[in-house]
Nucleic acid binder design. Structure first.
Lengths: 236, 236
DNA sequence: GACAGATGAGATGTCCGATGACTCTGTAGG
DNA sequence: CCTACAGAGTCATCGGACATCTCATCTGTC
């Protein structure tokens, strides 16, 4: 086993066995090097690995701390990597997203409060009132994020946020059929919001699932559009 | 921005923009240090971060390569961290697992082949025939993994594998009511397998969902049992 | 000519030492 | 009582040196 692996698994074991608990400051690098039997450089590489996985948090000048180890934080570590996935992988994630968005919408319908309902409709109506792509994108995010939040499961909320961030990178509204997509999207959102307002989990799930499926279809169109443009430009 | 961040985002940008593609060997450390303007130590820490996220793979003596960037690999990076989550977080993950296992079972029912059906029943019957906890645990894993595989979505398969690995750490069959749990678990598995054999996605989803809910209940019992034991032992 | 082993360049892995930058605390001064 | 500052402790960064591994090439033998 390499020195970095030794340090990585050593630290991980300290957390797994409860010797280091959430929020605690871990011993300084000098002490850990001695205990784990590795050099400072190797230890630091192991620390960075755990930091990338959101398990520990180094703070310059203060020390290195174990994170709160919330599942939503751990899941959030995927946010730095999903942007790098090729398109074939993105489609697999859409299948997950469809199922999970449906569940989140159903839970939101069951757990709704009057205040949150007002927020959802505000976002939806603001979205209907604008055509600016970046505004639409931001409001779309707020709309779905609020629904996920009401669902009551921060881990699910975080995971859906990761999926959605990747999709937002594509501006499907800039397509020739953008206006049509925008209208269809508005209708989807209203269907979801209405179902939630009616406290109808089944209808909310169905509407959310359909919305994701539509998004997937539009994304396909967008991608074939840009690849076509690439093909033409590179054939010059 | 710190030197490590500069190297991390620099590398990530090279992959995101397609300058480095999946499977390709990245330039040697010396060249990257010069281009990114950081020392070799800082670059190595950034490389380790991306390696922890399964984006690149250093190979001693050969070079560092961009991974295949399959979503199932990226999701697999969670396997090193879910073991560290506290119990409160585990319950949130069970809600996701319930939904996703149900979907995987439904998909398996729709995409079943005769050969895979045989494998599923073999695992199930072997499980029914043994009481040894470690055997049961291994067969339980094989049973569910095969169903997830048939589902046809490697990303979902990988994510469910991550969730299941954490649950397997608890040996619920060692409880006083272990035999009862074992029988109930066997019945759950038979219900899932039968629904899949009947190509009934709805029944398969319902059975899988119920099974996860049962697992969650038993886990609760197990945890209150061990914490009770802890309370008694520490009060001596 | 074909195969096996030796060899060398090139790459990552590891360690060491020194210095810089930042945080926090305790203390002296107002 | 509050502020300002000095110092210790900690992480951040750099440069260099050597070890270890991989792979392509060369070389010798058969």
């Amino acid at each position: 086993m390499s020195a970095v692996d030794k340090a990585f698994h050593g630290l991980r074991h300290m957390i797994a066995t409860g010797r280091l608990v959430a929020g605690q400051r871990i011993p300084p690098e000098k002490d850990l090097c001695e205990e784990l039997g590795v050099s400072r450089g190797s230890l630091r590489e192991a620390v960075r690995m755990l930091a990338a996985l959101r398990v520990i948090e180094p703070r310059h000048g203060s020390g290195t701390y174990v994170s709160q180890l919330r599942p939503e934080d751990i899941v959030g570590s995927l946010s730095l990597t999903v942007d790098l996935l090729p398109l074939t992988g993105l489609l697999q994630m859409y299948e997950l997203r469809r199922v999970l968005e449906a569940h989140a919408a159903a839970q939101a319908a069951a757990r709704l409060t009057p205040e949150t309902l007002r927020v959802i409709f505000e976002h939806m109506e603001a979205m209907e009132a604008t055509e600016d792509p970046s505004n639409v994108s931001a409001l779309d995010h707020s709309f779905h994020a609020e629904i996920a939040r009401i669902g009551g499961n921060p881990t699910l909320e975080s995971l859906l946020g990761v999926f959605r961030a990747r999709s937002r990178a594509y501006q499907v509204f800039t397509l020739p059929e953008g206006p049509h997509i925008k209208r269809a999207s508005d209708e989807d959102h209203r269907a979801i919001a209405t179902a939630i307002a009616n406290r109808d989990p089944v209808a909310a799930a169905a509407a959310a699932s359909a919305h994701v499926a539509h998004t997937e279809k539009w994304l396909h169109a967008f991608l074939s559009h840009v690849t076509e443009a690439d093909r033409l430009s590179t054939s010059d």
